[in-house]
Amino acid sequence: MYKVVNKERLHEIIYSMWIEAPEVASSVQPGQFIILMIKEKGERIPLTVADFNREKGLIRIVFQIVGKTSEELSTLEEGDKLFSFIGPLGKETEIRNYGKVITVGGGTGIACIHPITRALKEAGNEVISIIGARNKELIIMEKELKLASSELIVTTDDGSYGRKGFVTQVLKELLDKDKSIKKIWTIGPPIMMKVTCETTKHYPVETIVSLNSIMVDGTGMCGSCRVTIGGEAKFVCTDGPEFDGQLVDWEEFSNRLSRYKGSEKKSWDLYHQHNHTCNCGGRTN
């Protein structure tokens, strides 16, 4: 179980893997996440599901190297097995026919927005997807997103591909010219989701974000992932991961994401001292 059946390098530091997990694949829904452990001494990390294949019993994960665990994960090859892989966790995206909707993905959030976009389109929505990254190389899964949505707009900060600028600029233009947009989903780095919410706050459209907090069990037992939503403490693992972005306390959310910065660096440094096997160029986070 939990065998890596396919591995693909999407970018220097971004990887895609299809994992054999038939129990998870048979019940997963768009918007949900899994928790994995590479080995017995490893940590439990949550990753939003990027795709699934029920017949073959496979789950696709896409991750960026940001620390020791993600780097170690990137060294697994096809045929290797994960120690633990649980899910599907969290609530699924509320998929129904809203009419016209927008999905926005940034960084590896592009992968997470993918199954949501596809399901929204399958439910009859007209889905405009906006995906963005710093440069052309960091734009991942463009083909999949093109297929999953009614219209795809790509942006890069440096203009090396698609439209130059941030996803929020395109989003603002769309909202200004089209009043029929019913709902927005946005997944990406916290700062991008926060800025997206600031952009959409002046429009009468709900913006859903998907939070990726630090978790341990992921089933509501530990409360590590708690975040303030509209003044109330919620658990990302069982109440989320999707929330109304306008209600999120972004400062607290970002602070809590940095809880283990010191330890993470120590772990990363030690790992690099002992066995630096990736090709990340010694990038530190």
């Binding site: 001494k41 439990r44 037992m221 530990c222 283990y260 120590k266 772990s267």
Partner: peptide, 29 residues
């Protein structure tokens, strides 16, 4: 919800199940 406020469940799960007391041999901080 400050960073260093734990539920006992989280604190003990990190230490007991995940063996954070043996960090960095174990990865959980």
């Amino acid at each position: 919800n400050l960073n260093d406020v734990y539920s006992a469940n989280e604190f003990l799960t990190r230490s007991n199940l995940m063996k954070a007391y043996a960090f960095p041999e174990y990865d959980t901080p």
